[in-house]
Amino acid sequence: MNKNLHAKKILIAPLDWGLGHATRCIVLIQNLQKLKCDITVAASGKTRKLLENEFAGITFLNLPGYEISYSGNKRFLPCKILLQVPKILKIIRYENKWLCEMQNKYAFDAVISDNRYGLYSRTITSVFITHQLSIQTNITWLDRMLQHYNYSFINCFNECWIPDLNGKLNIAGALSHPPKMPAIPSKYIGPLSRLKKINAVTINYKWMVIISGPEPQRSIFEGKILELAAKINDKFMIVRGLPGDDSQKPASSNCMLFNHLGTEEMQTAMQQSEFIISRCGYTTVMEVLSLQKKSVFIPTPGQTEQEYLAKHLFSQNWSYTFNQDDDFKLHLKKATLFNYTLPEINMEQYKDVLNDFIERL
């Protein structure tokens, strides 16, 4: 029997470090569904909750996340992460064993792993999605060592998809454009965004703030935003990044506060805001750029990837940036005067890659 006659069974598994890996998988799932693929998602916790809210009728398999803990002090973050390396390696080994068991049960045609290093197999076509081929720590020897180990896992997959532009003007800079590429076929698939730009939208908010990231930094960031909003008269829309959480947070009268917004509500809120304030998580960056919104990115302290990315975007005048310990009120005033040069980006490049991939299965 010709295998091309049946609907392709695709397993998609996003990493659980923040919600960005899950949200950028939304557009992949949507388009794979249009290609008549049978989708299964491997996830747990907030990641699973977010995707369950987006998709009805999709099979979900429970796959525990990495559950990495972070330090409240940026100086101790690298040590905190290094101490968890044995735990990460243990989870990667578990992922690989788990995939073999699930493959025997479900017979997937392919697996698409968003930064989950263990989801590869010799018996199934596997794709690894990442924008971070070169890990930036500001320590040259450590960067080289980390890239070596990074590639040792990536090269176990059949393909690597890089959600960025291939050229001098790009989103992630050296993160996604290293001198040495992985040994496996690697493709720049363009940015991934679940959001679509709509013209002629009424502006209802001066600032939309998207709170995200690991604790305790998520709550520290949220506290600083709420303190700022109480001191100025501008209208704020604040999304706390807590899907499935019903807790309430007191806020000043100029704030609209939501624990979570679905895709349509998020798109509307972002379009109706003059400026977007958020962490410099890569998925959020792609979504902001897709809507051509003026943005202010405040990197999570100690996360060198976000710190590098914020500086790279600032150098291209694509966004404004400052640090969490800086004066928020002063820098937001500077952001309103910043000379933004917002790029026009082809946001549908990934569709050709998906079409080609499914045809080759």
Rank of each mutant, 00 (worst) to 15 (best):
185 P>T: 06
162 I>C: 10
92 I>Q: 03
27 V>E: 14
55 F>L: 09
253 S>F: 05
256 M>A: 07
150 N>R: 04
139 I>V: 14
97 K>H: 11
278 S>A: 15
5 L>W: 02
65 G>H: 08
55 F>C: 12
173 G>A: 12
72 G>W: 03
237 M>F: 11
327 D>A: 07
216 P>A: 01
314 F>T: 01
327 D>H: 15
243 P>T: 15
161 W>I: 07
334 K>A: 12
140 T>N: 10
270 M>P: 00
129 I>Y: 03
159 E>I: 02
207 W>A: 02
327 D>P: 06
187 K>W: 07
240 R>Y: 00
285 V>L: 08
90 K>S: 15
160 C>I: 07
246 D>A: 09
175 L>E: 13
158 N>Q: 09
195 L>W: 04
225 I>S: 03
93 R>T: 05
179 P>V: 03
344 E>F: 13
101 E>R: 15
96 N>Q: 11
102 M>G: 04
161 W>K: 09
59 T>A: 13
346 N>V: 04
109 D>H: 07
122 R>W: 01
332 L>Y: 07
297 F>P: 04
147 Q>D: 11
231 K>M: 10
55 F>D: 07
75 R>G: 02
113 S>T: 11
45 G>D: 15
262 G>H: 10
226 L>P: 02
122 R>I: 10
274 E>C: 04
82 L>C: 09
75 R>T: 09
306 Q>C: 06
256 M>T: 08
284 T>I: 14
70 Y>K: 03
155 N>G: 09
176 S>Y: 02
338 F>Q: 02
48 R>E: 15
119 L>T: 05
86 P>L: 05
102 M>C: 05
36 K>M: 08
290 S>I: 15
42 A>F: 06
77 L>N: 07
297 F>E: 09
125 T>P: 00
251 A>S: 14
29 I>R: 08
31 N>Q: 14
122 R>S: 12
322 F>A: 01
85 V>I: 15
16 D>S: 13
226 L>V: 06
164 D>N: 10
132 Q>L: 05
250 P>Q: 15
250 P>W: 11
144 R>H: 12
3 K>H: 11
82 L>N: 05
118 G>F: 00
34 K>A: 11
217 Q>F: 02
6 H>P: 15
301 P>G: 02
196 K>I: 14
87 K>H: 08
106 Y>L: 03
296 V>L: 05
13 A>C: 06
15 L>I: 13
354 L>I: 12
85 V>H: 04
219 S>P: 15
160 C>V: 04
336 T>G: 04
195 L>H: 01
213 G>Q: 13
220 I>P: 08
208 M>S: 08
296 V>Q: 05
133 L>I: 06
80 K>W: 05
123 T>G: 08
193 S>A: 12
264 E>R: 11
337 L>V: 02
261 L>N: 00
59 T>R: 14
134 S>Q: 14
321 T>F: 00
73 N>H: 13
271 Q>I: 01
184 I>K: 05
154 I>F: 14
185 P>G: 08
